[in-house]
Amino acid sequence: MSSLLMKIEPRGQVGSNKVKQLRKDNILPAVIYKKGDEPKAVQVSEMEFNRVYRVAGTTTVINLELEGKKHPVIVKEVQRHPYKNQILHVDFQELNMDETIKVSVPIVLLNRDNIRLQPSVLTQMLDEVEVECLPNNIPNAVEYDVADMTFDTPVHVKDLDIVNDKNITVLTELDSLVCTLSEPAREVEEEAVEGEEGLEAGEAEDTEETE
């Protein structure tokens, strides 16, 4: 998997007021975490972060360039304002490229708008799977084509191609349900109403005959 480059700087400002000033200057406070090391307080241009994060997400290795050295990381967490469209803080996890890592990989259902069996309702129960692998083997996403799904063939984790990848261990239960395809509820309700109306009509006829 290819990696991206992001330029960052050490952060000396750690108080809440100083962090607020950073955000006003369109600079994001961040921390680099690494197993066995003290966390590093850093900062990154909001524009620079968005440029890279838009491509990398949480599954692509990013090389952070800090004081002339490169640190391979993934984005571990992005803290956002509860109601403003604003990033408040970023956590990076530094990687040992020779050690496996546990990550959550998003599930992407392909051809959602081209399902051959219509009318139908596609329901996705699982949005991601947890895997363990070397950093360079982390997939951007787990894809599954739902174009040929039927009502009686729900998709489980064991049906995903990633299960057969020898470089990746899937940690999510293989019997976990990913998605199902069902008939629209409205049609079922209409059939039930029609059945009730037919029953009522039949009862009315029986009553008239009795009288």
Rank of each mutant, 00 (worst) to 15 (best):
Gln86Pro: 02
Arg116Tyr: 04
Pro72Cys: 13
Asp37Pro: 11
Arg54Ser: 13
Glu143Gln: 13
Met1Ser: 15
Pro184Asp: 02
Pro139Phe: 02
Val31Pro: 02
Leu110Asn: 07
Asn50Gln: 13
Asn136Phe: 14
Arg112Met: 06
Glu189Cys: 03
Asp161Val: 15
Arg23Thr: 00
Thr60Asn: 12
Gln118Asn: 06
Ile168Asn: 09
Val75Ala: 01
Asp148Glu: 11
Asn136Met: 14
Glu48Pro: 03
Val61Tyr: 04
Thr60Val: 13
Phe151Trp: 07
Tyr33Ala: 04
Lys76Ala: 13
Glu99Phe: 08
Leu174Ser: 11
His81Glu: 03
Met47His: 04
Val42Trp: 04
Pro29Glu: 01
Arg112Lys: 15
Gly68Ile: 02
Ala185His: 09
Ser120Asn: 03
Leu64Ile: 04
Met125Arg: 11
Leu64Asn: 00
Tyr83Lys: 01
Pro184Glu: 03
Pro29Phe: 00
Glu203Asn: 12
Ile87Ser: 01
Val105Asn: 04
Glu209Leu: 15
Val52Gln: 05
Asn111Met: 08
Lys70Met: 12
Glu173Leu: 12
Val42His: 02
Val157His: 07
Asn114Tyr: 03
Gln86Ile: 09
Tyr83Glu: 00
Glu173Trp: 10
Glu209Ser: 11
Ile115Asn: 06
Gly198Leu: 11
Leu160Thr: 11
Tyr144Pro: 03
Lys35Trp: 09
Leu109Cys: 14
Arg51Leu: 09
Lys18Asp: 11
Asp175Ala: 12
Lys24Thr: 11
Thr153Phe: 14
Ala185Asn: 12
Val170Pro: 12
Leu126Val: 10
Arg11Asn: 09
Ile101Ala: 03
Val103Ala: 07
Ile138Glu: 12
Gly36Ser: 05
Leu199Lys: 14
Val163Gly: 06
Leu117Gln: 10
Asp37Tyr: 05
Leu5Glu: 11
Val131Asn: 01
Ala185Phe: 15
Gly195Gln: 07
Val19Lys: 08
Glu94Leu: 07
Ile101Phe: 06
Glu203Arg: 15
Asn164Leu: 15
Arg51Ile: 04
Glu205Gly: 12
Val75Tyr: 00
Glu9Trp: 05
Lys166Asp: 13
Gly202Ser: 13
Val193Thr: 05
Gln118His: 07
Val90Gln: 02
Ala41Asp: 06
Asp145Thr: 09
Lys7Asn: 05
Asp37Asn: 07
Gly57Leu: 09
Ser45Leu: 01
Val121His: 01
Leu66Thr: 01
Gly195Lys: 05
Asn50Phe: 05
Asp37Ser: 12
Asp175Asn: 12
Ala141Glu: 06
Met47Gly: 08
Glu46Thr: 01
Pro106Thr: 06
Thr207Phe: 15
Val155Trp: 12
Gly36His: 03
Ser3Gly: 08
Lys76Gly: 11
Leu109Thr: 09
Asp175Pro: 09
Val73Gln: 07
Phe151Asp: 02
Pro106Arg: 10
Val193Ala: 04
Thr169Arg: 10
Asp25Trp: 09
Ser120Phe: 00
Phe92Met: 01
His156Ile: 11
Asp206Ala: 14
Pro119Leu: 11
Phe92Ala: 00
Gly15Val: 07
Gly68Met: 04
Glu9Lys: 07
Leu134Ser: 12
Met1Gln: 13
Gln86Val: 09
Ile101Thr: 08
Ile101Cys: 09
His71Pro: 00
Val178Asp: 05
Lys20Leu: 14
Gly36Tyr: 07
Glu46Gly: 03
Glu94Ser: 05
Asp175Met: 10
Asn111Tyr: 03
Ile162Asp: 05
